[in-house]
Write a protein that binds this DNA or RNA. Structure first.
Lengths: 119, 119
DNA sequence: ACAATAGGGGATAAATTTCTCCCTATGCAA
DNA sequence: TTGCATAGGGAGAAATTTATCCCCTATTGT
């Protein structure tokens, strides 16, 4: 496993939030889990652009950060379910605010983001 | 300048927000600018852990995304001032919500984040 | 002449994150 | 028997982001 060489900045609340949400798919994982998609394969279907590997890694981190909890059923084929912890649930309204701002400004955002890709 | 090889995901509002806020120092830059720190050297003093180079790069991206605007005064020594655009201002309350959640949960966040560093 | 100031950016290295490929295991269906 | 679904993770490559180092602008003060 990769070990960080540079310690994180944990000065203010924003640093702390960044530390747990910084990861390409984390916010979406939390969001879909809050919507009831609990099993890894479901999440993968919802987020097909992410590799299975990365989703697992990010789910592990979310679990380590106590935003989600993981229940493993001892059956074959394996069955795993993720769910939000109480702590994780408090984050959902915050993510909702982010998403609302994004939805509300969709056109403008799309335009400014695509600027650089129209080479 | 670095050219992306993999296009961004722009499916939903959350993707769009991520695209403009994803960058180690961007949120803090927006925040400090909103608090009235406008000059690059001020921002650098506020964020001493970031190199001048990276702050410039991220400020350039924020400008490209029309969240901040840059005014260059034709004087010597040079004087530059950044300020939020109207668009950027609408993002401040969203950032405030993030920061509030982080502040509110500071202890817990600090604990779960530091887990892995107590090796 | 020379340092200090204030801002910018190229080149390259290092750190970090993400992707790809491969291997584990079991029961069920074709 | 072969293939699929389900979940997990190691190894190493590729992509991306940050960090370091160094140089340039022009004026004012020592």
């Amino acid at each position: 496993m990769y070990e960080r060489k540079i310690p994180p900045n944990l000065n203010c609340g924003l640093d702390l939030v960044a530390e747990v949400l910084y990861g390409k798919w984390k916010i979406r994982l939390l969001w879909f889990i809050s919507e009831g998609c609990k099993r890894p394969s479901e999440l993968q279907r919802k987020i097909p652009d992410a590799s299975r590997r990365v989703l697992n890694m990010q789910l592990n981190e979310l679990e380590e950060h106590e935003l989600v909890s993981k229940k493993v059923y001892p059956v074959v084929p394996p069955k795993v379910e993720y769910s939000l912890t109480g702590f994780g649930e408090t984050l959902i309204p915050v993510i909702a605010v982010l998403g609302q701002w994004g939805d509300h400004n969709e056109e403008k955002l799309r335009r400014v983001i695509l600027k650089r890709f129209e080479n």
